[in-house]
């Protein structure tokens, strides 16, 4: 396990606003790191810094030993893929075309059959093979999200970098997905991790985070609040501190199970009425 992505006291300032401040982390190949935290904690900004989309105003980021800012976009594209929160399209591309656009640039040197195989594999990984010929615009939000996952999956497969030197960024990848597809998508990501890809995902569901993460990073008010294994990070005290929610149960079968006390209270009230 080698360190692939390294952030050293990274922060960014927009005017007087400082959405991310002094975050340090190291991501190893094959590792799944899940970022959690309340709305506005700086999770998405942290992702934008780590992907190179936003340049930090303080601190250093290194990808595979190189300073991130000095890596040209075309090279970066075969080292990491990024799935953003939501992507809409103003033109009626088909699902297969959207996935193909993901590899047009990085997979330029590949033979046509190799490209088609990668696209088919990506469609299968996101369970959207049956939608291949459909117009992206006519899909539901969850289906669109799976198409975007397939696009990033294909980009990594087409990139001419070894899988153990690639990073997959997922910003709230399951926000619109039904329960079975939430698990299926995270399993596809975990399978990539087993091939050596480092995965960093923003999730809101702490149970899903605890299930798939090797380590969890808790963001709060732009700062790194905690970073470690799920069982040590997701505790009753920390969830109360960071999210302001009381838990009624935790730590079952080695994994923390998060059920807000509030739910239990509401059930009791409704039962009484």
């Amino acid at each position: 396990m080698t360190t692939l992505l390294e952030a050293d006291a990274v922060g960014v300032t927009y005017g007087r606003h400082r959405p991310v401040d002094g975050v340090s982390l190291a991501l190893a190949s094959g590792e799944v790191l899940v970022v959690v935290g309340p709305n506005g904690a700086g999770k998405t900004t942290l992702m934008k810094l780590l992907t190179g989309e936003v340049t930090p105003t303080s601190g250093q980021i290194r990808l595979d030993g190189e300073a991130l800012a000095t890596i040209p976009a075309w090279k970066l594209a075969s080292q990491r893929a990024v799935m953003a929160q939501a992507s809409r399209l103003a033109f009626p591309f088909t699902v297969a075309e959207v996935v193909r656009i993901g590899i047009d640039s990085v997979g330029r040197a590949l033979a046509r059959t190799a490209r088609e195989r990668i696209i088919a594999e990506a469609l299968a990984a996101a369970d959207i093979g049956h939608l291949a010929g459909r117009s992206y615009q006519t899909l539901s939000g969850g289906e669109q999200q799976r198409v975007q996952f397939a696009r990033t999956f294909a980009q990594l497969k087409a990139g001419r970098t070894n899988t153990d030197r690639q990073v997959l960024f997922l910003d709230e990848p399951v926000a619109n997905l039904d329960l079975s597809h939430q698990i299926a998508l995270m399993e596809s990501a975990a399978r990539l991790a087993r091939e050596g890809v480092a995965v960093i995902a923003v999730l809101h569901d702490l149970n899903l985070a605890a299930t798939f993460a090797d380590r969890i990073l808790v963001m709060s008010a732009g700062r790194l609040h905690a970073l470690g294994e799920p069982a040590t990070v997701i505790t009753r005290e920390r969830v109360r501190d960071v999210f302001g929610v009381d838990l009624c149960r935790e730590a079952e079968g080695g994994l923390p199970v998060v059920l807000p006390q509030h739910y239990a209270g509401m059930r009791l009230e409704r039962g009484a009425a």
Partner: peptide, 14 residues
């Protein structure tokens, strides 16, 4: 084509 996915996406695609 890549730009139609969004500016950030196009950048991520190289």
């Amino acid at each position: 084509n890549a730009l139609l996915l969004g500016e950030a996406e196009a950048f991520h695609l190289g």
